[in-house]
């Protein structure tokens, strides 16, 4: 059991993910928060790789790290000229947040006990063929719908942020 490099990689990535997640939350500067999110997502991709889900890791990097984060950065740049840094809330807000988050974490933490317990190594060592099969057969409709959704979203987003064109008449 011990010394399997994949396990070590997993734990390393898991710890770094959590560390960067903390950074996302506490960073005052928005750009820093986004950068921390970028690394948190990258480390999640690392976890996927360690679990043998290489295709998912690739999707995570390309779509999430590459797409979403860049998008968020654009958002930051475009709405930035007023607020460079974000103020914290007061202690009155801080405590309820801590309680709620703690309760959720505690609940999820113990929820894990109800689920099947399996040890490393994973059953499916290579995910890509399974995914291909699923997308082309079982989830073909969902897959197509997701594609259409993405197109719709892009158009919709472009519509929302478009500049009003005034016709001179």
């Amino acid at each position: 059991m011990k010394g399997n490099p994949a396990i070590i990689v997993f734990w390393l990535c898991a710890m770094l993910t959590l560390l960067f997640a903390v950074c996302v939350i506490v960073a005052r500067d928005l750009v820093r928060a986004v950068t921390a999110l970028l690394f948190a997502l990258l480390m999640t991709a690392g976890m996927y790789f360690a679990l043998g889900a290489d295709f998912l890791g690739a999707v995570q990097i390309v779509l999430y790290v590459g797409g979403v984060v860049v998008l968020v950065l654009f958002g930051v740049m475009l709405t930035r000229d007023v607020e460079m840094t974000v103020p914290y809330l007061g202690f009155g807000q801080f405590l309820p947040a801590l309680i709620v988050a703690g309760a959720v974490t505690w609940g999820l933490w113990h929820l894990a006990d109800f689920l099947p317990r399996k040890a490393f190594p994973p059953v499916h060592r290579s995910v890509t063929p399974i995914l291909g099969e699923l997308f082309m057969k079982k989830y073909i409709v969902a897959f197509e719908v997701a594609s259409v959704l993405l197109v719709g979203v892009l158009i919709g987003a472009a519509y929302l942020v478009r500049r009003e064109v005034r016709r001179e008449e």
Partner: peptide
């Protein structure tokens, strides 16, 4: 080092929290 499914679930629980 060991790794069980519930470890991963707990990592994700903390992340979610």
């Amino acid at each position: 080092m060991i790794l069980y499914t519930y470890h991963i679930f707990r990592v994700s629980a903390v992340l979610f929290g």
